[in-house]
Amino acid sequence: MSVAEVATLNARSAKTRQGRQPVAQVVVEAELLQASEPDEPATIAPYVRSLGENVYKVKRVLSGKLEDTEIIVLQWVVLGGQPLASSEREEGQIYRLELESADSHPELAGEHRSTDIFEPVMNVYYDVNL
């Protein structure tokens, strides 16, 4: 790329970001009710990362606003072809989660997901702390 092309792309990107509003974030303590079994990294190839879908019961809102009492949370369980500690979370345990609406993260739409959850009526959030 030429210097002029890079400058043009940078200016376009800056203009796009200019009008964005910050995404609402909520921090909660929540009990893991149902954890999806993460797929093995070898079985998801050519993907090298995967999101797990887990059901949590909100115990306490630490900051922000959240009306839901039970939610589905997307959490990274595989990155760079390696399982993460988040893939070993235990049901019944309380975790601190930093959440944003999954609708605010369209970039996640094409990501591989490990899911055993079939609760279409629950709102879905993305754990931005992982």
Results as ranks from 00 to 15, higher is better:
residue 40 E to N: 11
residue 98 E to Q: 10
residue 36 S to Y: 02
residue 5 E to R: 06
residue 46 P to N: 08
residue 73 V to K: 08
residue 24 A to S: 11
residue 68 D to K: 04
residue 15 K to C: 01
residue 74 L to D: 07
residue 105 H to P: 00
residue 92 G to T: 09
residue 30 A to H: 05
residue 115 T to S: 15
residue 37 E to T: 15
residue 93 Q to M: 12
residue 89 R to K: 13
residue 9 L to Q: 13
residue 42 A to H: 06
residue 128 V to C: 02
residue 73 V to I: 10
residue 123 N to P: 00
residue 79 L to W: 03
residue 63 S to P: 01
residue 58 V to Y: 03
residue 32 L to K: 02
residue 130 L to M: 06
residue 60 R to P: 00
residue 4 A to H: 11
residue 12 R to E: 15
residue 100 E to V: 15
residue 13 S to Q: 11
residue 6 V to I: 14
residue 12 R to S: 13
residue 68 D to P: 01
residue 104 S to N: 15
residue 38 P to D: 05
residue 73 V to N: 02
residue 20 R to C: 04
residue 50 S to C: 13
residue 31 E to V: 12
residue 18 Q to H: 13
residue 100 E to S: 08
residue 41 P to S: 04
residue 47 Y to Q: 12
residue 112 H to S: 12
residue 23 V to L: 10
residue 33 L to S: 01
residue 49 R to G: 09
residue 74 L to P: 03
residue 48 V to C: 03
residue 71 I to P: 03
residue 116 D to Y: 03
residue 78 V to C: 05
residue 81 G to K: 05
residue 78 V to N: 07
residue 59 K to N: 15
residue 16 T to A: 13
residue 84 L to H: 10
residue 120 P to L: 04
residue 79 L to T: 08
residue 116 D to R: 05
residue 109 A to V: 11
residue 103 D to L: 13
residue 22 P to K: 06
residue 88 E to L: 05
residue 106 P to L: 06
residue 107 E to W: 01
residue 77 V to D: 13
residue 25 Q to T: 15
residue 37 E to L: 09
residue 19 G to C: 01
residue 79 L to C: 03
residue 80 G to I: 10
residue 122 M to A: 03
residue 125 Y to G: 07
residue 4 A to I: 03
residue 125 Y to D: 11
residue 118 F to C: 04
